[in-house]
Write a protein that binds this DNA or RNA. Structure first.
Lengths: 197, 197
DNA sequence: CAAAGTATACTGACTAGTGAGTGTACGCAA
DNA sequence: TTGCGTACACTCACTAGTCAGTATACTTTG
């Protein structure tokens, strides 16, 4: 493997990431990506078979880092499980206030590509969300929360709902409202809750 | 006003609705819409100034009917407030299982058009979600629920989260999970809840 | 009441530009 | 001297929007 191959490929993915996330998949042309990466389209096509491949690579590159960030928020927060969950949503709100924030790249890509069911980028997006849910579930179980899998799913629903609402209203306080709801669901002292992990 | 003007315009909007919802805004050309409406592109441009106008008309036409449907689900359901909310999410799940279901048109349009901040379609989408939230809040208040506005917002977050998760995973059971969470938030017997409507 | 004028609703053919993807040639390292 | 990585120049399909003109129906006027 030539030493610069990975570098060039990575430079292309980085350029694609910036542009796809910032402007949307369909709004960005392969020429745009190549130009931003500082090379010609032909070179890009040497490293990627098609635009679809590039889209998949864009999401694949986002998967792990995103999970590390979100779980980092949670693990860094002090206090009870509810406090930690509130912190996650508070951080999400902080992100949402950044001028360059454009929602969740996975969700937006899913919205753009609904009509191409088998698309690898869609699979990558679904896998990513499942992984995040599993990370929550693991931590909930460890904390001894009742029905950790169910709670993790509900928190994920609020998480994605917060993304959608922040994007729709351009108002980060929705993430905080979602955080309050998530805290209550995770508090584990509600009358209906049954024991058993 | 000539008697057929409204009919043709409506036919165009109906065609746009089918195509924009089914395939996405950018994936559908003005020619596609015209062809499906059974007229030429030039005629379409006689009725709409631009594609952006057409997109806005598509969402405007979806606003009221959608609200009527969702609130119809709620009002038709028997039982407590929690039962009614559960019914809403159950109906959403039912919708999500339909093969032609492609998520929430408002959310998907918002995702596609993030980069054009002033777009009328985005305003229409935000207004629609706010209206739906207000309808929930009104019913929650009438039922005597604590903090109805906050609960309505949380239910909306779960609603949008359900849309996103169903789209991502192509699994309608996420709506049911969201419904369970919404029920708990609306049950009004949790220890932390303070009185006052 | 008939002729002329005017607004409405529509069309086929076009422009100017952009899209993804390719054929081929050139430089350079092993 | 082979083959990897890169570039220029190209194809062909498609896209939003426009030009110039037509058919029909309603309104005005002599």
């Amino acid at each position: 493997m030539p030493k610069d191959a990975a570098t060039t490929r990575d430079r292309i993915v980085a350029a694609a990431s910036k542009l796809f996330y910032g402007h949307g998949i369909r709004a960005v042309s392969v020429d745009d990506v190549a130009a931003r990466a500082g090379l010609t389209k032909r070179t890009l096509y040497y490293h990627f078979r098609s635009k679809d491949d590039l889209i998949a690579a864009y999401l694949a590159a986002r998967d792990e880092p995103t999970i590390v960030i979100v779980m980092g928020w949670m693990d860094a927060a002090k206090g009870t499980l509810a406090d930690k969950i509130e912190a996650v949503f508070a951080q999400l709100a902080r992100l949402g206030r950044h001028p360059k924030w454009r929602g969740c790249g996975f969700l937006r890509t899913a919205a753009e590509l609904v009509t191409t069911p088998g698309h690898p980028a869609l699979k990558a997006g679904a896998a990513h969300k499942k992984k995040l849910e599993a990370e929550f579930a693991g931590r909930f179980a460890q904390a001894g929360l009742d029905a950790p899998a169910m709670r993790a799913r509900q928190v994920m629903l609020l998480f994605d709902g917060a993304f959608s609402a922040m994007l729709t209203h351009r108002d980060a306080s929705y993430a905080e409202a979602a955080g309050q709801a998530a805290m209550e669901l995770v508090r584990d002292e509600r009358p209906r809750a049954k024991r058993r992990t």
